[in-house]
Simulated assay, not measured.
Amino acid sequence: MEYVGIMRTGERIAARRAELGFSQSELARHAGISQATIGKLESGISSGSSQMHKIARALQTTPDFLTGETDDPSLGAIPLPTPQMIAEQLGMTLIPEVDLHFALGGGSYVDGPVSSTLVPYRTDWLERITKGAQADVILTRGDGDSMMPTILDDDDVIVNRSDRVITKQDRIWALGYGDLVAIKRVRRLASGVFQLLSDNPNVSPIEAYEDELRVIGRVIWIGRRM
């Protein structure tokens, strides 16, 4: 955006706020000041404020830009830290929590895009359980009781997506087949057919051919709320 010719402080605040997509209330919240202060500056009722440094930081610029000393909003500005930067400073790694319950029964249908949020975990702990592959893990939750007592309904489950080749018997995997997703133990029979096994003895195994399966990853950690 071209700021040359926009000289009044309030006009610059309003223009920069619009460029970043903030409402007055959002800017006030980010800056930690009242919306009334923002409103008075933008309307011209106030020509300055002792909170200008807070407003400038929330707008990712400097007080010099807001007061017209420079027309470059990035000159001398300190960028706001990203969640990833904050996590790294705290020795944490952000992993996506996938908003999809992996079925512990017959399977859950995937009928739309899968969304996720980022959840912080200690980097050193993740390195131990993933053997250095923490960039390829997702956090999700089980849904159902067919994997009881190993995995309970709503348990947190970490899946290593870099491990997708089923080479050992009876490991627990996150799988897709057709439009279904599930967490199951997998056993390969001599015939080449895969058995999808539940730890609950009351649930019958499912048989599937290799080309029917989509291996999402191997389950490497299970967490439970008390």
Rank of each mutant, 00 (worst) to 15 (best):
M1R: 08
Y3W: 05
V4I: 15
V4R: 15
G5P: 06
R8A: 13
T9K: 05
T9W: 04
E11M: 09
I13S: 01
A18H: 15
L20H: 09
G21S: 09
S23N: 15
Q24S: 10
S25F: 01
E26Y: 04
R29A: 15
H30N: 15
A31N: 03
I33R: 03
S34H: 10
S34L: 09
A36I: 04
I38L: 09
G39A: 13
S46E: 02
S47Q: 12
S50F: 13
Q51W: 11
I55L: 10
A58R: 02
L59P: 00
T61D: 04
T61R: 02
T62N: 07
P63E: 08
D64L: 11
L66N: 02
T67H: 13
G68N: 07
G68A: 10
D71H: 04
D71Y: 03
D72G: 11
P73E: 04
A77Q: 11
A77T: 13
I78R: 10
P79G: 07
L80W: 07
T82K: 08
M85D: 12
A87W: 01
Q89K: 04
L90D: 10
L90N: 07
G91Q: 09
M92I: 07
M92F: 11
T93I: 11
L94H: 05
I95C: 08
P96C: 03
P96E: 02
P96A: 09
E97F: 04
D99T: 05
F102D: 00
F102S: 00
A103P: 03
G105W: 03
G107Q: 02
G107I: 02
Y109W: 09
D111K: 11
V114A: 08
S116A: 14
T117R: 08
V119P: 02
V119K: 06
R122P: 14
T123N: 11
T123D: 11
D124I: 11
D124H: 12
W125P: 02
L126D: 02
L126C: 11
E127R: 15
I129L: 10
I129R: 05
Q134T: 14
V137I: 15
L139R: 14
D143S: 07
G144N: 10
G144R: 04
D145A: 13
S146R: 04
S146E: 06
M147Y: 08
M148R: 12
P149F: 09
I151D: 01
D153H: 13
D155T: 07
R161H: 01
S162M: 03
S162N: 07
D163G: 02
V165D: 12
T167S: 07
Q169L: 10
Q169V: 00
D170F: 05
R171A: 11
R171G: 15
I172G: 00
Y177C: 01
G178I: 06
G178Y: 04
D179H: 04
D179L: 07
L180A: 07
V181F: 06
A182L: 03
A182E: 01
I183H: 00
K184P: 00
K184S: 01
R187M: 14
R188L: 14
R188A: 07
F194Y: 15
F194I: 14
Q195S: 14
S198V: 07
S198I: 06
S198C: 08
S204D: 12
I206Q: 06
E207V: 12
E207D: 13
E210I: 10
E210V: 10
E210N: 09
E212P: 06
L213R: 12
I216N: 03
G217W: 00
G217L: 05
R218A: 01
R218Q: 15
R224G: 12
R224M: 09
R225L: 14
R225M: 14
